[in-house]
Computed example of a mutant assay.
Amino acid sequence: MKLITSVTLLSAAILAGCQSTSSPEEQAIRSNLCTAGDGSGSSYTQEMFEKAVMGCGGYEIFVDDMLIGQELVFSFNNGKKKRQMVLMDDGTGKYTKLESGASENITWELQDNGNLHLAFEDGYKWDWRLIEEKGAFWGVKSHGYGENEGDRDVLSMVVMNQTALTSFE
């Protein structure tokens, strides 16, 4: 009888530990995040970015209300490099590396094609395309590029609009 009780308790503990604390919206975005065309290096040009976006089925457009004054949280490397970004209505913003607390000023604009274009003080640029949206969670395909040709990437990520998430609760 003790063995059965121990196995039952162990099974319950394992199942409880495996349950995700993320919302159904976040789970849906994460499980369907299209990573086609993702990678880094000199070959990851704007043309490669366009192909990667189309390989994911195209994109939706960003609008001001989705971005201005919103706390956007995302990460790289499976959640190990968390970032926060807040964009202001004057075209400026703040980009913060949450693990170190380091921040930098950025500028941003919505381009005619619905891209979110970000520019950093060091000359690095980053274009975002909205691939999918579920509540406060977005699937985003991005293209980062600097002056060095090797400093380019196409990356898919889940972005959480923390401000909107708080208002949904």
Rank of each mutant, 00 (worst) to 15 (best):
S103N: 07
D127W: 01
Y124G: 01
A36W: 02
I61A: 12
Y44M: 12
D151T: 05
N78M: 13
A119T: 11
G139Q: 00
T92D: 13
K2E: 15
G123A: 04
T21F: 05
G91P: 02
L3G: 01
S103K: 09
S142F: 02
L67D: 13
Q19V: 06
H117E: 11
W138I: 03
C56E: 05
V154A: 06
Q162Y: 06
E169A: 11
F49E: 12
E149W: 08
F76Q: 10
G150T: 06
L9T: 13
L118H: 01
R30D: 06
H143F: 08
G93L: 09
F137G: 00
M157H: 03
W126R: 03
G146M: 06
I14F: 07
K81A: 09
S142E: 02
E132W: 00
V86A: 02
G41M: 02
L130G: 00
E26H: 06
Q84K: 15
S31W: 11
G17L: 01
V140D: 01
A119I: 05
N105R: 00
A13G: 13
W108R: 05
G41T: 13
K97H: 04
S103M: 11
I106N: 01
E147R: 02
S23L: 10
L72P: 15
A102H: 04
L118A: 00
W126Y: 08
R129A: 10
D38I: 14
P24K: 05
D89T: 09
L33W: 06
Q70A: 15
A12G: 11
T163E: 07
K134T: 02
G144H: 07
S43E: 10
G91T: 08
S22C: 03
S42K: 14
Q162T: 14
G57V: 01
S167I: 04
L15G: 14
T8H: 02
L98V: 13
M1R: 03
G17F: 00
D38T: 15
E47Q: 15
Q70W: 04
S11R: 00
V63L: 06
T8N: 03
E169Q: 13
L130V: 01
L33P: 05
D65W: 00
E47V: 02
V158R: 07
F49L: 11
L3D: 08
K80D: 15
T96S: 04
N113Y: 00
V86Q: 04
Y59F: 07
L98F: 02
H117M: 12
G79Y: 07
M1N: 01
G101P: 14
N105C: 07
E147H: 03
T35I: 15
